[in-house]
Simulated scan of single mutants.
Amino acid sequence: MTPWILGLTGGIGSGKSAVAQHFIEQGVHLVDADQAARWVVEPGRPALAQIAEHFGAEVLQADGQLNRAALRSRVFTDAAERRWLEALLHPLIRQEITDYLARAESPYAVLVSPLLIESGQHELTQRILVVDAPEQLRIERTIQRDQTTAEQVQAILKAQASREERLRHADDILVNDRDLDWLRSEVERLHTFYLSLRGGQP
């Protein structure tokens, strides 16, 4: 039977990486959209050559890897360039995710993506789990993790889908405002429930 796909998302600092790790520990096949986004621009992949041709050699590092900071500064200030890049990368990332999910041998597989809703990747899934936490807690966690400032975290929060938008798409919501042991037991509970589903629906 083909595994059904669970979309896992949550705002910055919600703890979706910890939740993802617990699913992996349960033996669930998991693909990370952020990793897929890195794979498609590795040296030797066609996307990297197209990016270098379009933006010029300054978006490459000396070793031929993508210079993310240089590329970011080019597309953040220019909406047309950002759209060009997204039009190139989104279908490739989607293909990478689809290929990887197709290799799943667990009864269901997980697609982790911070931009699951915004990128349209939720269309690849049959069910959506949103990891949520109070905003203040998310800000504190992110500042601790990334050694960043509250202002920078607020800017990222604004760029991501609003919490309401995410929750509106959610089939399941995991409020991560306690400790890791509790979180692990919640993932185990969800995992047991998910194993009982056919095609992601009760």
Rank of each mutant, 00 (worst) to 15 (best):
E118G: 07
Q95Y: 03
V28E: 07
T77S: 14
S113N: 07
V40L: 06
L197F: 05
A33K: 11
H169D: 01
V153A: 00
Y100C: 13
A80C: 00
I156V: 14
A36Y: 03
L60S: 03
V112L: 15
T125H: 06
I5V: 15
I173G: 10
V153F: 05
V130R: 08
Q154R: 14
H90T: 02
E86H: 01
V175Y: 15
I143D: 03
E151S: 06
G10Y: 10
Q65A: 10
G10T: 07
A104R: 08
Q144W: 01
F76T: 03
D78V: 06
R163V: 00
R45Q: 14
D34Y: 14
V131Y: 09
G120T: 10
I139A: 11
V41G: 07
T142E: 02
A150H: 05
R163P: 02
A36F: 05
Q154C: 01
R94F: 08
H191C: 08
Y108F: 14
R189W: 13
S106K: 07
W182K: 01
P202K: 09
A87I: 01
I5G: 00
E53S: 14
D63C: 04
I24C: 11
E165K: 15
D34P: 06
Q61E: 12
L111W: 03
A79P: 05
Q160R: 04
G10H: 10
W182D: 02
S106C: 06
A52E: 12
Q65C: 13
G200A: 09
T148D: 09
K158Q: 14
V112M: 11
Q147N: 14
R184C: 03
Q144D: 02
A70P: 12
H54I: 01
R184A: 10
P3T: 06
K158P: 00
S106A: 12
E58W: 11
Q160I: 01
V41I: 15
A18D: 04
D34H: 11
H90V: 05
D32I: 09
A159D: 07
E53N: 13
D179C: 05
D179Y: 04
V31M: 00
R127N: 03
A20T: 09
Q61K: 15
R141M: 10
A20G: 13
L88S: 04
S17T: 15
L66S: 05
Q95W: 12
